[in-house]
Design a protein around this nucleic acid. Structure first.
Lengths: 242, 242
DNA sequence: AAGTGGTCTAGACCACAGC
DNA sequence: CTGTGGTCTAGACCACTTT
């Protein structure tokens, strides 16, 4: 079905993409569910199957959905595997990913500092939940993390206390209907401070890799701020440019 | 045109992609040139225009070619803009990319050390060219780099001496027909050594961000090893995960 | 005006999953 | 066997660039 050549003309498949994304974000379909088939969607939106296909292929490329030949198109789930492959960049010297374990040191509700408020797009003093945890690889403490969440998006999450699960993104999605879609990281080299040194069992002034991550949801709203400091003697951050 | 359903069956568009990639790698078309039109390629390979389109769209997604409506499909060129957007991840605090200037400290032909040989897929002691340079942002030295090239792929490059251009990838492509397609980076936090400290005008033990990059050509052969050490007070490494 | 890539459609056949 | 997504084709029309 064609339409008016208006000044704000967008290709059909982009319009369909937008509509499907909105429905995903509003929770019309849950992670793990199957979307209607291509032919059903084509009828629903009054376009050809090829147009639906192009929209779905785009969403698959962005990992919003997973296509299964013979089965259907599934809404992407934050199983531990996806978290690992999309959001975990720390590798061992031999090139293998190491799944760290975590120990929560602190998990409290408080108010946003100026920097946190700016990065999470909140007003200053807005309620946030702050988590500090230490992460272990081969039972050696390698990473200290400070995580800040807007309390409004995660009501009552602080009640988990120190029993918070290791894979937070799966928790966000399952319990709070928040899907992490993108993350922006800033990396710097810093000196370990007294706190870092104690948590990691190293001497102060040891160089650490600081990773400051802002995670965005399906609608590109920032929903998590995470600052990780890593001891990079045995591990490194791997990035592929292509 | 369909073909036999053999056990090694690959979709037509992937076969076409492969053939086009081979012709690109072998230099049948030069960077900046226009490929034959979709219809011409369709005739040439005996497939439909849609199949050619799918292959070309894939190549465009990988930045191997650039599509221009009304003009044609161009072989991607390593202008400074592309180098900047694909391979430069250091940003200012305000979020803008800073183009550094460079001063070459050393450019000599020598033999590969064990580590260099391993990463560049050479035998130990193979001839290499080693470059050391210092890079400046806002006329402050921020980065020291050690670059290692397999001499066979870049014959005579050492004769440039200290007059090497700032944008090396454009030189590789233009003068040596080597196109950098991918790069794999490993990031670590390290202490500045005596050399770093002198070059950057900082005190030893200052934490530096070390970026170890192996750059690959169109055929995924490693063709450059580059170790950069950056002072990250005013700049940071930015990475987007999506 | 001619030629290019971009969008959209319709229909055929194949490969795979599940009943 | 049915329904799903994956591949391939053919043709129409549009938007853009060049001559």
């Amino acid at each position: 079905m064609h339409e008016q050549p208006s000044p704000t003309h967008q290709p059909l498949y982009q319009q369909v993409y937008r509509m499907l994304l909105d429905r995903l974000a509003s929770g019309d379909w849950s992670p793990g569910e199957l979307l209607p088939s291509e032919t059903a969607l084509a009828q629903l939106y009054g376009v050809s199957q090829g147009t639906i296909r192009k929209a779905l292929d785009t969403m698959a490329a962005e990992r919003l959905v997973v296509r299964h030949q013979g089965r259907g198109t599934e809404v992407a789930k934050h199983d531990s595997e996806r978290s690992l492959f999309q959001f975990w960049h720390l590798y061992d010297e031999d090139g293998s990913r190491r799944i760290p374990s975590s120990k929560v040191l602190e998990c409290v509700r408080t108010t946003a500092r100026a920097g946190e408020a700016r990065q999470l797009n909140l007003r200053r003093g807005a309620p946030v939940v702050r988590i500090r945890r230490c992460r272990y690889i081969d039972s050696r403490a390698r990473i200290v993390e400070r995580i800040t969440l807007p309390a409004e998006r995660f009501p009552g999450i602080e009640s988990h206390g120190k029993a918070l699960p290791n894979t937070l993104y799966a928790l966000y999605q399952k319990q709070y209907r928040v899907t992490i879609q993108t993350a922006i990281e800033k990396l710097r080299a810093v000196k370990a401070d007294q706190n870092d040194a104690e948590s990691l069992g190293i001497e102060p002034t040891t160089p650490l890799l600081e990773i400051e991550r802002v995670a965005l949801d399906l609608e590109d709203e920032p929903v998590e701020l995470r600052v990780s400091r890593c001891e990079t003697n045995q591990i490194h951050y791997k990035n592929i440019l292509d």
